[in-house]
Amino acid sequence: MSVTSARPSVEWKRPTKWVTISLFLLPALALYLLFVLFPVVQAAYYSLYKWNGLQPLTDFIGLKNYGTALASNTFTTAVTNNVLIVVLSLALQIPFSLFLAVLLNGRFPGRAIFRLVFFLPYVLSEAITGIVFTLLLQPGALVDSGLNGVGLGGFVHDWLGDTGFVMITLFIIISWKYFGFHMVLLLAGLQGIPRELEEAALIDGAGRWQAFRFVTLPLLGPTLRVSVFLSMIGALQLFDMIWVMTAGGPLNASNTMAIAMFKAGLKNNQMGYGSALAVILFMFGLVVALAYQRFVLRRDVEGAVTAFNG
């Protein structure tokens, strides 16, 4: 040890730091490459072939799978359904969660119980939720007899069998499951806002609505934007619950992109076509995520980075 001079160690110092960092990063990076990026590239490659998953990859058909997908009614319906869920979630589910979060942010007895009750559906697994609601929504089951019992028999539908209504049914159930999650997220955001700010606004003569609109809501912006982001990504990847409840039926009316992909690849053995759908789904998610990061989340992230450097 004493033999080693100081000079080389000084020379070694900087490279060692970076070598160490990269070596520590390598396992995670390797796993990421192997299980995330490599399969993405693989899917893109398979999507250029007509392939049933068993035979050799010989039937190169270029972008034909993509053409088939875009021309297929089944797949365009699936895309429409995904977009529908995104729009409905943003228009109804998030405002509702925000409303509840604001209510539960006030002080009143039993507040913790309400918070717990509203959050509970989120804890259930999607499959269990799907099975429970499938049973409740059977013709003549609890939902129907409940509606009949309170004199709303006119509202009774073939909830999961009516092609025109199935997506609405599913949206309500999805909202039921996830509003609690967004509520808790927004509640956490609300609690991070000092109460004094709103109080000051009230003292300055602002009404309750004005104080919420111009003080609380802007300060809740970062949380709200994350909530919207998670909701959009979740809606684009929708699979489990719909698969359990309708399997995309009836007549493909409740297909989503993920369901169309699963059916093509694993049910119909159209691995090439299924891969093309997977790539389209991936691109959808990527474009939405990047655009959202670029145009909406940017200011939040920039703020954070500035604080870090400062």
């Binding site: 040890m1 100081a6 160690s9 070598v19 160490t20």
Partner: peptide, 22 residues
């Protein structure tokens, strides 16, 4: 400092062997 360098190198060897295992 020399001792540090050696232990760093030793750590590197450790990291490498873990990597190899992985």
């Amino acid at each position: 400092t020399g001792g540090q360098a050696v232990t760093t190198r030793l750590r590197l060897v450790g990291v490498l062997s873990v990597m190899a295992l992985l």
